[in-house]
Amino acid sequence: MTRTLEPLAVPTGPAVLALLPALADALDGRGPAWLPVPAGDERETARLTSALDAGGPVDDATALVVATSGSTGTPKGALLSAAALRASGAGAYRHLGGPGSWLLALPAHHVAGMQVLVRSVLAGTEPVVVSPGAAPAELEVALARMPAGRRYGSLVPTQLVTALDHPGATTALASLDALLLGGAATPPALLTRAVAAGITVVRTYGMSETCGGCVYDGVPLDGVAVRISGGRVLLGGPTLAAGYRGHPEHPAWAEPGWFRTDDAGVLTDGVLTVLGRLDDAISTGGLTVVPQLVEAALGTHPGVRECVVLGVPDEHWGQRVVAVVVPTSQPPSLAELRDHVARTLDRSAAPRELHLRTGLPLRGPGKVDRRALLAELTRPRG
């Protein structure tokens, strides 16, 4: 009998626990392979099931096909085998100190939330679930319900920013053996604040194509290989997907055993530092500016709560550096931010334009939607 790929409607909230038996079967090679889709979102479900050929045959080794988080164009589906998912879970538990129970506060149709479910299956535990947009008080209550033993959570930086403004949630997060933080770069100021509050933060790097996080605090999990080629991060090892569904010749998989990411990075004594996406680099006045470095510098200013840096077309500079900032109670001025950045980076990297906002547009689990923000900033006025 031919194995098929079937849609798996993934709800938010405690109802997601009903999926655990299906995931356990998939990890044991029983039943169909699953394509996680957001329950209740008919449009997105139709988009994913059509693009990724739900109902069609799939390789016997495949357990999950996880859609990449791209918000435009045709989605790609990472072919994740049961062996890769098990290797990911085993590597994470070796790094963290052993199996445990989890807080699920991420959308589980994305890889980070799905991995909380998979790792719960592997540990024989049941996660405590809150909705992705849960208020800090809800996080506090949920964490209080977690059983004794090793306890873990997984959040994106924007969730942690909000939680740190709530003393009860902060104390509850500090009780975890580890809080995995991924999905987007962690601003240094946020990390400093969390560590000072006693939270054991583990910064993760990975993507759907690697079963989620495969590098923790810059260190690859057991068996994971990292190398840099032309400034680009390449990843290898047992957590890799088998490629993209329906795209066997995709250039990201051109070199057997390696996945070519879209990220720039450096390796120092075996520790990876991700500098940002290669296509986010800003060319201004003939110089190249890495937005994530500017964001890190801006994040240390007391008036900056969250920020994103973009390159906007400019007749004189080619691109001008623009900062979009969610301020604290004391909003900064452009002059203050330019001087602040210039203390640690070349002044050419300092923003030439500042926009203050109450929040940043997001896509997927916590990633800033740079494309939407850039379209907004460059839209003709009037």
Rank of each mutant, 00 (worst) to 15 (best):
H95S: 15
Y205R: 02
R94L: 14
H301G: 04
P220W: 03
Y244R: 01
G303R: 05
A178S: 03
R203I: 15
L275C: 13
C214K: 02
F259H: 06
V201I: 15
S88H: 05
L310H: 06
G198Y: 08
P32I: 12
R363L: 14
E295N: 03
R94G: 15
G113C: 08
G303Y: 12
V37Y: 11
R86F: 01
P351T: 05
Q319S: 01
L235D: 03
V341L: 13
A137K: 04
L337M: 00
A375G: 02
L275T: 15
H109I: 13
A174E: 03
I199L: 10
P107S: 14
T358D: 15
P167I: 12
L139I: 06
V37I: 13
A112V: 11
I282K: 03
L155Y: 03
S69H: 07
V326D: 14
L373N: 06
A350K: 07
V324H: 01
L190Y: 00
L272E: 06
T4Q: 09
V215N: 03
L179H: 05
V156Q: 02
T273V: 13
S348H: 10
V37W: 01
G265V: 11
L80R: 05
G133I: 13
I282L: 04
A39L: 08
L354F: 07
K367G: 03
T288R: 09
P38N: 03
G318P: 11
P248K: 00
A46G: 12
A169K: 07
